[in-house]
Amino acid sequence: MVDGVGAHAGGGTGDGTEYERAFDAAVAADERIEPRDWMPDAYRATLVRQIAQHAHSEIIGMQPEANWITRAPSLRRKAILMAKVQDEAGHGLYLYSAAETLGTGREELLDKLHSGRQKYSSIFNYPTLTWADVGAIGWLVDGAAITNQVPLCRCSYGPYARAMVRICKEESFHQRQGYELLLALSRGTPAQHAMAQDAVDRWWWPSLMMFGPPDDESQHSAQSMAWKIKRHSNDELRQRFVDICVPQAESLGLTLPDPDLRWNEERGHHDFGPIDWTEFRDVLKGNGPCNEERLTRRRRAHEEGAWVRESAAAYAAKHTTGETGAIHA
């Protein structure tokens, strides 16, 4: 950061000032933008939106998996699932911290989530109906998330990029565990195999939707790529994911529910069938199978916990002289 830039800490509109040129040069040189650096208002707003949505997804994403913690069929699987849900809460915390470096607060972001003004990933509006769904989420949903997120480790905004490095390591671990869970089912009894196939059938298309709308309909893509927040287009990442999943499905002994899926020698990629974008838009609008339930549950946890946070704050106010192990409300 250059001396005096603090005077412009509120950002600017990109009218070709010295700050604007310094920012553009830093992005062009693949340097990291840090919290105290000048940045365009729109860059800041885009990052807040994206990081908050990412944090919210981690928090809402705990619900479909936590749904199976009390019913996990072995103690080993139960421990793995609990650890995973705990990691997700931790990822949410990293990401809220990253968002806070942009001048917003966690309370404000949670408020926007609870009032529906900020979104979370559409995938978590689908229900987990069987134990195999826990495996399908690990393999496909975490797999799609990793494909999306690995390039974010090189994102131009430093705090977000560093959070993603840590998150991607843990996500890869979860993804392998999900794959291994499905493999155990696929090689298990006929009933277990059928349970695994059914879960993959239900989660495949929603996972492909996680990459967002097709490139010609994606409103934020061009600008995000210019700012190096985003490195690849939605369709590019979706194609990469399909190409990774096809051989994995084969080694799992499971099929993917797409009659049009086949290798295209000429393109060097798999062709795949059309995505039901009507369903995608419906889920985004709040009309998916679990939208109402997920948000209600989150709001209720927050509201029912209000007295706990208030009591902790009152205690902190009474005992301000550095209590050890302080718990933040």
């Binding site: 705990m62 609990m82 915390l93 989150r298 916990g305 933040h328």
Partner: peptide, 15 residues
């Protein structure tokens, strides 16, 4: 305690 997952009063307590 596993029943608390997703219901805690504050994210730090989820962890």
């Amino acid at each position: 305690l596993g029943e608390w997952a997703g219901h805690a009063p504050v994210l730090e307590e989820e962890v």
